[in-house]
Amino acid sequence: MGLSSRTLWTLRRYWADRLGVPPEAFEKSGGTVGNAEEGGIQLFSHGDSQIVGVPGPLLDAAEDRSETEIPLDAEDEDAVHGWLTRFDGIEQAIGPTFYGYADRETFTPVESDARALTAADAAAYRSFQRSIPDNEWEQGGTQFTPGETVGLFVDEELVAVAGFDVWEGVLAHLAVVTRPDNRGHGYGRSVVSQATEKAFADGLLPQYQTSDAWPWSVALAQDLGFHRFATAYLGVYRR
């Protein structure tokens, strides 16, 4: 079972607005260019559609290129990176990135002892954060908010944490980190499951974003019923 038509409608309109294109761009084959100030050039591949959001200074150059020049195979990483870095001011290309979403019809929760952390868990949270390498915390760390942040304890030690940021009142952008010496036991999946439940309770659509270079992270999301809506790349714009 895939994402519901209502969920797809919501996602197409949300991302069309973010990328500066009409919602119909996500339902037609080929490339569409829009004006989007997202810190670089974003390329979203959704089925047969290629949506490119471009900062104002590069918009003319992007529109001058024919649709056939937009890479249509999102799995051809070299072609996409080469296309992005040919624009003036783009210093590097990042991707491919998995953008996955779950709705109540696709979500497959897991039973666990994961729970919302309380103020009494602050010391355990600080100890947990110190155990995570800085670069990993930047990628998946979440702010400690009692009653909101989800954690899982094993033998009285906090081993995994998840939470989410709210994007424009629509999406719950999930983040998850597991203690390095406690990985491979499903703890990350457990806290993401609980955080996803909370997102639904708050009336939000949960979003799981991760690099396709981390298949274990993609698998975590898919095991919970997250479906790939888009494969995305970012050309980082030097301002």
Results as ranks from 00 to 15, higher is better:
residue 141 G to Q: 04
residue 223 D to G: 15
residue 81 H to S: 09
residue 156 E to P: 14
residue 130 R to F: 05
residue 10 T to V: 09
residue 8 L to N: 07
residue 21 V to E: 13
residue 88 D to H: 05
residue 115 R to A: 05
residue 176 V to S: 08
residue 41 I to L: 06
residue 24 E to R: 00
residue 57 P to S: 12
residue 88 D to E: 13
residue 159 V to Y: 07
residue 102 A to P: 15
residue 73 D to M: 00
residue 100 G to M: 05
residue 235 G to S: 04
residue 93 A to Y: 00
residue 230 A to H: 04
residue 11 L to C: 09
residue 62 A to W: 05
residue 219 A to L: 14
residue 173 H to V: 07
residue 194 Q to F: 11
residue 139 Q to G: 11
residue 176 V to N: 10
residue 82 G to L: 04
residue 188 G to R: 02
residue 119 A to G: 08
residue 166 V to S: 02
residue 160 A to L: 00
residue 233 Y to M: 08
residue 82 G to I: 06
residue 111 E to T: 15
residue 147 G to Y: 11
residue 9 W to T: 01
residue 121 D to H: 07
residue 160 A to G: 04
residue 134 D to Q: 14
residue 208 Y to G: 03
residue 19 L to C: 10
residue 50 Q to H: 12
residue 118 T to P: 10
residue 127 S to M: 10
residue 217 S to E: 04
residue 12 R to Y: 14
residue 187 Y to E: 02
residue 142 T to A: 10
residue 24 E to M: 02
residue 220 L to I: 15
residue 216 W to M: 02
residue 23 P to Y: 01
residue 156 E to Y: 14
residue 105 E to H: 01
residue 35 N to C: 08
residue 237 Y to C: 07
residue 163 G to H: 02
residue 225 G to V: 05
residue 86 R to L: 01
residue 54 V to P: 01
residue 53 G to L: 05
residue 190 S to Y: 09
residue 166 V to H: 09
residue 92 Q to F: 02
residue 161 V to W: 03
residue 90 I to V: 10
residue 104 R to M: 10
residue 86 R to Y: 05
residue 47 G to D: 09
residue 36 A to P: 06
residue 159 V to H: 03
residue 142 T to F: 12
residue 121 D to F: 03
residue 40 G to V: 06
residue 124 A to P: 02
residue 32 T to A: 10
residue 185 H to V: 11
residue 167 W to V: 00
residue 170 V to A: 06
residue 13 R to S: 10
residue 98 F to L: 01
residue 80 V to H: 04
residue 158 L to F: 07
residue 31 G to D: 09
residue 152 L to E: 11
residue 110 V to C: 07
residue 84 L to Y: 00
residue 2 G to E: 14
residue 2 G to C: 08
residue 225 G to A: 01
residue 91 E to A: 10
residue 23 P to T: 05
residue 233 Y to I: 06
residue 149 T to N: 09
residue 144 F to D: 07
residue 174 L to S: 00
residue 69 E to S: 05
residue 145 T to P: 04
residue 210 T to A: 01
residue 157 E to K: 15
residue 162 A to N: 02
residue 11 L to M: 13
residue 141 G to T: 03
residue 192 V to S: 12
residue 151 G to E: 11
residue 46 H to L: 11
residue 136 E to R: 10
